Structure formats: structure tokens, C-alpha cells
Amino acid sequence: MHIPAQKYSKKDVLNDLKYFEIVIESHPLYNDHLDNSKISEIISAEQRNIQEDSISYFQYKVILGKIFYALGCVHT
């Protein structure tokens, strides 16, 4: 269960984003039919934008929302 007041450490969020990027790049559906550079750009921009030691639940949800929007359809 996610608690809206919860904070996520910068290190954990960066690890999640890197893992997410690897999964997208290695999945055949996404690799063959998506412009992965757009998703990589979103992930890179978000990694640079995290300046504090932690981010809020809502900030994390917005980051994931941008990535899912770029994916269009999630099959994994």
C-alpha cells in the first residue's frame, strides 16, 4: 500500500528508473514498435531533475505517468 506522505530515496528512484529503462529496451514488443529514445530522454531528464535526497509519492507517480504515457500500452 502506498501512503501519499511517503518519500522515496533518490538512490532507489534512480535504480528503479534504470531498471525500467533496461526492461523496456529488452522487451521485444517495445523494442520493435516504440521509439525508445523518447522514453530514454524522459528517464534521463527525470534523473537530472531529482535534486533532493528523496522525492514524494506524488513526484514519483508523475515520473512513472510520463513513462507510461510514452509507452502507450503496457504489456509487461
Rank of each mutant, 00 (worst) to 15 (best):
A70V: 11
I43F: 13
K10P: 14
Y69M: 10
R48E: 12
E41C: 13
I24L: 02
H2G: 04
C73Q: 14
Q59S: 11
N31P: 07
P4G: 13
E52A: 02
P4T: 15
D12C: 08
K11G: 09
I50Y: 02
I43L: 06
L34V: 09
E46N: 00
D35S: 07
Q6Y: 06
D32I: 06
Q6A: 07
H75G: 15
A70H: 11
D12T: 13
K10C: 14
D53F: 01
Y60R: 12
I3E: 01
R48I: 15
M1D: 05
A5F: 12
K7A: 05
I67W: 06
Y19L: 01
Q47C: 11
E41Q: 10
P28D: 01
L34S: 03
Y69S: 03
H2C: 10
N36T: 13
S44A: 13
S44T: 08
D53G: 11
I63A: 01
F20K: 04
N31K: 14
H27K: 08
L29E: 08
E41F: 07
L17I: 05
V13Q: 09
I22D: 04
Y8K: 09
Y19G: 01
E21A: 06
K18E: 15
H75A: 13
L14P: 12
F68D: 10
E25Y: 00
K18R: 10
K11S: 14
G72V: 13
K10I: 05
V23L: 06
V13W: 01
I55W: 00
H2N: 13
Y69L: 11
Q47L: 11
I42T: 00
N49E: 11
F68S: 04
T76K: 09
D32P: 05
V74R: 12
K11V: 13
C73D: 10
H27V: 05
Y69D: 03
V13D: 14
D53Q: 12
F20M: 03
N31R: 12
N36H: 13
P4Y: 03
S9L: 10
F68C: 08
F58T: 07
P28M: 04
V13I: 06
K10M: 06
F20V: 03
N49Q: 05
I22L: 04
P28S: 08
E46H: 07
H27Q: 02
Y69W: 11
Q51K: 15
F58H: 07
E46M: 02
D53K: 08
A70F: 03
V23D: 06
I50V: 08
Q6F: 07
K66P: 04
L64V: 05
Y57A: 06
I63D: 00
K18Q: 15
R48F: 08
E25W: 00
I43M: 06
Y57V: 02
L71R: 01
I55L: 00
D35W: 02
V23Q: 09
S44Y: 04
N36R: 15
L71T: 00
C73W: 08
S26V: 05
P4D: 03
H2I: 14
I55D: 00
F58P: 07
K61I: 03
